[in-house]
Design a protein around this nucleic acid. Sequence first.
DNA 1: AGCCTTCTATTCGTTTGATCTTTCTGACTG
DNA 2: CAGTCAGAAAGATCAAACGAATAGAAGGCT
Lengths: 231, 231
Amino acid sequence: MARTADVVAAIKDMILAGELSAGDRLPTEKDLGAQLGVSRGPLREGVSALAAMGVLDTRQGDGTYVTSLEPGVLMAPLSFVVDVHNAGGARPYLAVRRVLECEAAALAAMNIDADGLAAAERALAESEAAAQSPADIDRFFSADLGFHRAVAAGAGNPVLAALIATLSGRTARARLVRTIVDEGALGRTVAEHRAVLQAIAAHDPERARLRMDVHLAGVEDFLQAPPSVVL
Amino acid sequence: MARTADVVAAIKDMILAGELSAGDRLPTEKDLGAQLGVSRGPLREGVSALAAMGVLDTRQGDGTYVTSLEPGVLMAPLSFVVDVHNAGGARPYLAVRRVLECEAAALAAMNIDADGLAAAERALAESEAAAQSPADIDRFFSADLGFHRAVAAGAGNPVLAALIATLSGRTARARLVRTIVDEGALGRTVAEHRAVLQAIAAHDPERARLRMDVHLAGVEDFLQAPPSVVL
DNA sequence: AGCCTTCTATTCGTTTGATCTTTCTGACTG
DNA sequence: CAGTCAGAAAGATCAAACGAATAGAAGGCT
């Protein structure tokens, strides 16, 4: 008799059955509550849960709508999961990320278009510039993130890109970048990125995969055996 | 001024800051509401959202608790995402699944223990038996799912296993199995599974990866170019 | 003494009604 | 025809009350 769970299940089913599609507007709270046989409290709890998961979008004074349901939108809440485990054992996440990013690099070498290549090039140039002055850690951080996302986007698989983006949450990535900076390995990171991009630009999947693997394995080494970093 | 969003963010922060850990009990709704400055309505909406995401667990008459926060629990809600896209373009999901399952097979060949090997063996034997009689489609379906999960578990990476389990949601998998049955390829599927398991038992990572790749590529072919299946 | 039953306080679950804020729509006016 | 403003509609919030389930304490039975 979990009313809230019923509401969530009912709305899910409506979407899965095609009664509700992306962009559609739901009935008003009053009507939907009557239709499902629950009062506004539990109904709002269910709608709120789906909104937090990125499935629904409520706008005061307007109504409640089904979102675009794109993988990127629906996976965004997962970044919280990554953040939770980031403090403790982050290695399993890194291992998965490595697998996915290597695949993305290989796919990007085959599928990336001129625009995507230019975007990756811009991000790389930006990170190169930011690596010059130690004060620009934040800039480097953003550019680094942008490069990896550009590669993931170039693979042409939105699910793959969404997963990579999720696994490289801001918190997790910030920790990585901090470690890299502490190790004075900014230059090496940029060089490895350039190697990856060259392979992608040359449309050489296996080389792109290998170079991304080398890059991420190096990053993992930093994190797994930090010689000087205590925190 | 989105009260509900504030509640979600506040509880998240409490967990990230370590004020709340796995298994901890939250203050009562009345107290927590007062602490956050919201009334019971919005508070319950926020708690409900986190409960739907697998972060919190509320028990009537007892209280609200933080879940184990394990990757498997927190990623379960994502199966809905897969189901939503299953009807339309499922190929991106299959492509990602292939990458992850191949990696899992290779890792399992290196890391699996005797118990895990026995579990995979049992699932395989079960599916083999179920493949004999066409009436046991459901049994075959469950055993097939069990085999893939056993391999994923044998890899020893909970994040990897959780992602694979999520991407092989019941709905998505049911569709695959139906197609395979229609094609009369049950025997071939079992044989491919056995080949994968042999490579894992022999602790040969590359062979395990290759054989899993062959298996999943074959499955993908079924789905991408169904000669006779309309639905 | 130990175990089982029962009772009670606590806590979440649901309902209802009222009020506030935001947004959209359409009529009105220059 | 365009801009403005008032009203309607919808979600957001608060508040009070009652129902249901659980845990733990109290009491009685063996």
